[in-house]
Structure formats: structure tokens, C-alpha cells
Simulated assay, not measured.
Amino acid sequence: MIVVVAGSSGLIGTALVARLRAEGHEVRRLVRRAPRNPDERTWDPDAGVLDPAVLAGSDAVVNLAGAGVGDKRLTPARKQVVLQSRTRTTGLIARTIAALDDPPRVLLQGSATGAYGYRGDTRVTEEEPYGTSYLAEVVRQWEAAAAPAVADPRVRVAFLRTGIVLAPSGGALGRLLPLIELGLGGPLGSGRQYWSWISLEDEVRAILHLLEAPVSGPVNLTAEPATELEIVRALAARAHRPAMLPVPGFALRIALGQFSEEILGSLRVVPAALTASGFAHAHPTPEAAAQYVLG
């Protein structure tokens, strides 16, 4: 296949591009600077510039572009960056696809489990409506920006509602793993809140699966949810370290501001559509993920 990837330099995008190439697919990477490699194509989402020829002749587009929600404190200005980095890229890609005479047949559009807000212990499937949290509103506008492609009967659009990605380096564990390996890891807040998580390996495998599987609409990219404490304990056990020292919720709120809601809020999202499509996780449990993350 010829696959166009936006957001190819992030944690998921980097791993995805490597896997696509390893499996023999041709990749076109969208970059916001002058091309440095033969597989790169320039675009400018802020200016609304994307040459239709970049998408023409491709089989699929995977859009993972967007500023990190937890990378910086969520000031009003940063919130605008987070939102616009998603809606502008998604809208530009969707409009360009819909205007093509022969568009790619698949758009896998990045999204997040934050769409549902915080639901406590309730098991949440793709049938649930949007929540009312900050991130839920971001996701609502993010997914809405894909409307031109969704309305095109020639294109299958799936929204990759990704959970917390567990990887050997970077991502959600980038700051937590060093503490765990020093024996300083422990529950964040009560530790009883559910985390909707997936290993990086399974995230990439799921995206490749969805390039072919006839699935449209929201798709929860998660494994079976676990509590934050279960995940931390699995990682600590694999590292042969204790997981005793709790981090109080008020300390997280001081350190992380509004983003602490994403750490302390409980969201139990299950991969109903992904499982129904025939996907099998390589790392279905926190223990399996810990072995993957920590070798």
C-alpha cells in the first residue's frame, strides 16, 4: 500500500512508519519544513496548504498530528495550540481527500479516549456519547473536523480513540519509569482510578489492522482497562522494585495543573469495536505490557 502519514515524528508515528516500511508498504511523510528525504512531502496546516498531489494515488492516510496535551501546562494559550493543531490538520486533510477525483479509500484519524470524559468504574464502549471534560470537547471538535471525508462515500473513516500508550521510552511512562526503576514509584492519587491503556506495540498493530479491517467510526484503541495501581505494581514487579510511595492528588494538581485531571480521573474504556473486528492483543494485561516495556 501507499500510506500517507501525518504526525510521523511522534511516539506512535515513528513506530508506525518503521513497521509500515518493514512490511513492504510505501510511506509518504507530511512535514512542516522543506523535505530532507525522498519520502517527505511539505505541508502547512496553519496556512491551509496541502498539495492534492501528495494524497493522490495513495491507498490510505493516517493522521496522528497534534500538539501534546501533557507536554506543557494547559494555559488558555496552550489550550488553543492543542485544539488548533488538531482541527486545522484534520480539516485540511479531510477537505483535500474529499476534493480528489480518486481519493484514498481509508482515513485513519487520530483521536483519544478522552472523548468520554470521566466515567468512574463504568465500562465504556464506542456507543457512549462525548463527555463534558476539557479533553472531551477537544476530541469532539477534532473528530468533527473530519466531516468532509466522513461524508464522502468513497472513503472509510475510523477514529483512533487511543488510550494511555505504554512504551519502553517516552510517552506516558517517560517520567514515571525512571522513578519506578529507582524504587520510588507508587500510586498516583488513590491509585484506584481506571487507566485505559495500550502498549505501543499493540497500538501500531491495531492501526495496521484497521488499514484493512472494514471498521468505520470511533474505535477504542485500548486493552482491557486496569487501575493505575495495578499498572504501576506490574511495572514495579518487573523492575524488581517496590511500589509503595504514593503521590498525593493535591501534589499532582500543583505540578500538572488541569492535566492532572487526566491522571486522576477514572475512565474504563474497552476495545469493543477493535475486538469485534478480529484483533488480538499481543499485550492484553498489565503484566504482559510490563514485560514488553521493561524487557
Results as ranks from 00 to 15, higher is better:
residue 75 T to I: 12
residue 100 L to C: 05
residue 56 A to E: 12
residue 115 A to S: 10
residue 236 A to Y: 05
residue 138 V to P: 04
residue 108 L to K: 00
residue 219 V to I: 10
residue 258 Q to L: 14
residue 265 G to L: 09
residue 225 P to E: 00
residue 81 V to R: 07
residue 66 G to W: 01
residue 230 E to W: 11
residue 191 G to V: 10
residue 135 L to C: 09
residue 2 I to E: 14
residue 112 A to W: 01
residue 92 L to A: 00
residue 265 G to R: 02
residue 87 T to C: 07
residue 178 P to A: 05
residue 132 T to N: 13
residue 204 V to L: 04
residue 201 E to R: 15
residue 70 G to P: 08
residue 167 A to D: 08
residue 33 R to V: 10
residue 58 S to A: 15
residue 295 G to L: 11
residue 142 W to E: 03
residue 141 Q to T: 08
residue 40 E to H: 11
residue 265 G to Q: 10
residue 268 R to S: 00
residue 285 T to I: 12
residue 184 L to W: 12
residue 190 S to D: 01
residue 145 A to S: 03
residue 94 A to L: 08
residue 107 L to R: 03
residue 78 R to N: 09
residue 270 V to K: 05
residue 12 I to G: 00
residue 173 L to V: 10
residue 181 E to F: 14
residue 271 P to G: 08
residue 268 R to G: 06
residue 52 P to S: 07
residue 58 S to P: 12
residue 226 A to R: 07
residue 188 L to W: 07
residue 26 E to D: 15
residue 27 V to R: 08
residue 42 T to A: 15
residue 184 L to Q: 05
residue 137 E to S: 12
residue 11 L to R: 04
residue 286 P to N: 01
residue 8 S to Q: 03
residue 79 K to Q: 11
residue 145 A to R: 07
residue 180 I to P: 03
residue 270 V to L: 08
residue 162 T to N: 01
residue 246 P to I: 03
residue 125 T to N: 07
residue 227 T to C: 04
residue 195 W to G: 08
residue 261 E to I: 14
residue 90 T to L: 00
residue 214 P to L: 03
residue 144 A to W: 14
residue 185 G to P: 03
residue 147 A to R: 14
residue 27 V to M: 06
residue 210 L to K: 00
residue 139 V to H: 05
residue 138 V to E: 04
residue 269 V to E: 08
residue 6 A to L: 11
residue 254 I to W: 15
residue 15 A to R: 07
residue 12 I to L: 10
residue 125 T to W: 13
residue 86 R to L: 06
residue 50 L to T: 02
residue 186 G to K: 07
residue 272 A to P: 10
residue 237 A to S: 13
residue 55 L to A: 00
residue 163 G to V: 07
residue 225 P to I: 09
residue 210 L to Y: 04
